[in-house]
Design a protein around this nucleic acid. Structure first.
Length: 464
RNA sequence: GGUCCCGUGGUGUAGCCUGGUUUAACACGCCUGAUUGUCAAUCAGGAGAUCGCCGGUUCAAAUCCGGUCGGGACCGCCA
């Protein structure tokens, strides 16, 4: 395909009178007999191609190479709805590079009325629809801007392991059987929590990662098995420092994608105030007008209780066992295990339009405080050693005071893009019942694979 | 673990409650033909569903009942 350079659909308005070559998909076809119109679609948009005197067999979604001349349209023939509506390509040659069968559904509509299972099976076609093209491009722009902001603030982007250790952090783990150590398992990370804290021990001071987090819990419209978060950790900081960083990053990135934000700086409420005023952590500060205008309205929530009683009547942490108590007095209560229900954690959550979009806290960097938390949670000495000994040990080697935050920016994008489902801002999401798009996992594996993993091969699957 | 909802041509729906006038309707898409200015082109014609699957009730089931599979929402759960 050498020779002349490729021209994108959107660039044709600047090349009137020139001969051009375009590549793309047949978006639509209007056949008038002696003249046929094609809307050619590429990554930049649409442009009309006029075909006279010859007509190849062209169908919707065929991939074509079009050679022709860019011309102004005659007066009255312009299309004001199209950015390229003042011009058209007078085709001299059209080559079909790849034919397309009729797609199983309309790829030009919003797609919201098509059964989602079908859309996900053919996600690569579903993603052709303008709405999803936009969603994923906006997502990309947001992440790029967030990175820009963080790099500018001297953050280091570091990747942490996907194959790691199962620790009872609150959510159910996805586990991966080990081949080399039969009967033992890796766990996929619920969050990079422990590694990012260890990076503070390591002296990086400012870390971030666009991190995948996996949790084996039943899904919801705004919650799947896996999601991506912008994960941040900082040394020598107050809660306000971290909140300022997250807020700055969020506003910078939202500005880049053209989102409107109602209240700047973000208002801060205590957990107590929130429960009294709204009765829920998922509160929405927007006025009816702001809702209509698609404005984002943020608020921080601080001063969460560290522990609460579960159904069995034993203590459980409300957010994160690695949190620090909010001050010396609360730390003293924790170390002495007194008035446990009154201990306040240095924890902050960010809420946007009724969605929890970020959460974090200042961590405890003292081994005895961390141990005390696990003792309140009812762990035995040996268990703490086995599950969290590495953290307690690391804290003995000069771990700076540190804190961080994780932003579930997919939810933020959902709110901005007006989507009701997290899946609409993910490229290849799972169905609500945990099957993967296109590939249909989970699936059976061969007996050989199972034997290598030391997993007993069952003759037949038993129904429960 | 629980509650509720959905499943009818390729896609989206109607019909189901109140079983039989159903030869299963409509829109979009698809195919064929016509068409030199459309842009959701238009016009004419056509093909395409044994109603998710299994069983039951009945003279008769898309329609009623039971089960099952698939999908979805929510509660629990999700630091």
């Amino acid at each position: 395909m050498g020779g002349m350079e490729r021209t994108l659909a959107l660039e044709t308005t600047k090349k009137v009178g020139e001969k051009v070559i375009l590549f793309g998909w047949v978006n639509s076809r209007r056949d008038h007999g002696k003249v046929v119109f094609i809307d050619l679609r590429d990554r930049s948009g649409l442009v009309q191609v006029v075909i006279r005197a010859f007509d190849r067999e062209l169908h919707g979604e065929d991939v074509v190479r079009v050679e022709g001349k860019v011309a102004y349209r005659k007066k009255g023939n312009e299309n004001p709805d199209l950015p390229t509506g003042s011009v058209e390509i007078v085709a001299e040659e059209i080559e079909v590079l790849a034919k397309s069968e009729t797609p199983p559904f309309d790829v030009h509509s919003q797609g919201l009325d098509i059964e989602e299972a079908l859309r996900l099976k053919y996600r690569y076609l579903d993603l052709r629809r303008p709405r999803l093209q936009r969603n994923l491009r906006v997502r990309s722009d947001y992440v790029q801007a967030a990175r820009e902001y963080l790099f500018d603030q001297s953050f280091v982007e570091i990747e942490t392991p996907l194959l790691t250790k199962s620790t009872p952090e609150g959510s159910r783990d996805f586990i991966v059987p080990s081949r080399i150590y039969p009967g033992k398992f890796y766990a996929l990370p619920q969050a990079p929590q422990q590694y990012k804290q260890l990076l503070m021990t390591a002296g990086f001071e400012r870390y971030f990662q666009v991190a995948r987090a996996l949790r084996d819990e039943d899904t919801r419209a705004d919650r799947g098995f896996e999601h991506t978060q912008i994960d941040i950790e900082m040394s020598f900081v107050s809660p306000e420092d971290v909140m300022k960083t997250v807020e700055g990053m969020t506003l910078y990135a939202l500005d880049k994608i053209g989102a409107k934000v109602a209240k700047k700086p973000f208002p801060v409420f205590t957990y107590k105030e929130v429960m009294k005023r709204f009765g829920s952590e998922r509160f929405d500060l927007r006025s009816e007008k702001e809702k209509k205008d698609g404005v984002l309205s943020f608020a921080w929530v601080v001063e969460f209780p560290f522990f609460e009683k579960n159904k069995e009547g034993s203590w459980t942490f409300t957010h994160n066992p690695f949190s620090a108590p909010t001050d010396k007095a609360h730390e003293k209560l924790l170390l002495e295990k007194k008035r446990i229900g009154e201990i306040i954690a240095s924890q902050y959550d960010l809420v946007c339009n009724g969605l929890e979009v970020a959460g974090g806290g200042i961590r405890s960097n003292k081994p005895e405080v961390l141990k005390s938390v696990f003792e309140v949670l009812g762990y035995e000495e040996e268990e703490i050693e086995e599950k969290f000994g590495h953290m307690v040990e690391a804290f003995r080697f000069g771990t700076p005071p540190h804190g961080g935050c994780a932003q579930g920016f997919e939810r933020l994008l959902m709110a901005y893009l007006g989507e009701d489902y997290l899946r609409e801002v993910q490229a290849f999401p799972m169905t609500g019942s945990g099957r993967t798009a296109v590939m249909d996992a989970p699936s059976e594996v061969s007996e050989k694979q199972l034997r290598e993993l030391g997993i007993e091969v069952r003759k037949k699957r038993k129904k429960k």
